[in-house]
Write a protein that binds this DNA or RNA. Structure first.
Lengths: 212, 212
DNA sequence: ATACTAGTTGACCGGTCGGTAAAGTGCAAG
DNA sequence: CTTGCACTTTACCGACCGGTCAACTAGTAT
């Protein structure tokens, strides 16, 4: 054995920091949370944070990676793979998102919206590194949407020449917007009320012919 | 004459502060802009700011009011009243939003997204006063959307029993989401690419009959 | 035993945060 | 001329920001 588990069963400050950063930043925002507060919640001194991470940005980046991994495993995959039929899958996915938001609101008192969208909005204009990392996570979500849509095309639920790329992107945009509205309302019911619009964007447009 | 223009033609620090706050906060975020920077851009000393406004939050609130008034006058009304026909109006509105975002990006180097949605996302969970003010502005936008949809119902472009309230809300959510994505991309082309989805949500759903 | 190293600790840094207080300025009404 | 008021100016406040540092602790390998 080359490295027999760094020390033994470690108390793992690194993970505690990631967890604290997730809870605080997702529940509030990047700018509204200081590293002192993160350290306090993690039960770790500030110097230790800088042993594991070069700074606040890097900690946030790592937090987002872990958050996406959890989100994919706990919400995206089970929410989308659940039912048969495209519209049933949409319904299940909306309910999964609703449950996710409602649970966090119950735990922390705050409806967070989409953590990735939130950070993209807050940091998008003046923090390119974070912006591009978030862009990558959003692309990963889009890819999941597209594969669901591709399956629907193969099953004949959607026309053969459907632009699933475009539809997946529209789904993501709509989902982000729904979560912005839910956050502005601080009410998870908004997600259920607007969720069905995800199905509407799939409908064939009768303006195939347009005389201009 | 009771009050012959407070002093004479005033240099108007108040308006300079509102303008500076708008440019900076819209271009970055609430948390990333300090009052010192706002004062510097406005060419006003900090004490004067606190003569006109009780604090940063009140300044931001007043800035948002003025911003909404301008947005309604310059984008919302001309963008929605322009053309005949619902789909033409959608197209015109999307182009108006695109022009708005592209102009700000050209001026400041930053694509801001929706200033109201941005603030709702950033402050929604921990700043109820701002959140509710923003919620009011978003409702005002929804009302404009709904009146356009109501006209379309009257003109027979939409079925008589269309739930224009729900559709207007879906439009706003989608528009917010489109602007989140455009901000994540920092690319106004995203607005044009996703804009047509606004028309898609209007399409009649062929699942009017569902056997379950 | 010794040397090495991953991890921890607490004191400390300059800078900036939002906000305050008091003195001063200049116009206008009495 | 004087008082009052709207507004400006400057100096200042304590708190907090993200980040640094050197000393320390404790397991590990030799």
């Amino acid at each position: 054995m080359e490295t027999t588990t760094p020390h033994h069963t470690r108390h793992d400050s690194r993970e505690d920091l990631l967890k604290a950063a997730r809870e605080l930043i997702v529940g509030r925002s990047y700018g509204a949370v200081g590293i002192a507060e993160i350290c306090a919640r993690a039960g770790v001194r500030k110097g230790s944070l800088y042993h594991f991470f070069p700074g606040k940005e890097a900690l946030t980046l790592a937090m987002l990676d872990a958050l996406y991994a959890d989100f994919e495993r706990e919400v995206l995959i089970p929410g989308l793979a659940g039912a048969d039929g495209l519209h049933a899958r949409i319904e299940a996915f909306v309910r999964a998102i609703h449950a996710f938001e409602a649970r966090i609101q119950a735990e922390s008192g705050q409806l967070p919206g989409c953590p990735f969208g939130n950070l993209a909005v807050e940091m998008g204009t003046h923090h390119p590194t974070l912006r591009q990392a978030i862009r990558g996570h959003l692309d990963a979500v889009t890819a999941h949407f597209r594969s669901v849509l591709d399956e629907a095309v193969q099953d004949g639920e959607l026309p053969p020449h459907t632009d699933t790329d475009a539809l997946a992107e529209q789904w993501l945009a709509l989902m982000e917007g729904i979560l912005v509205m839910a956050k502005a309302d601080q009410d998870p019911a908004t997600i259920l009320r607007l969720g069905p619009a995800l199905g509407a964007v799939l409908n064939p447009s009768p303006e195939a012919r347009h005389e201009s």
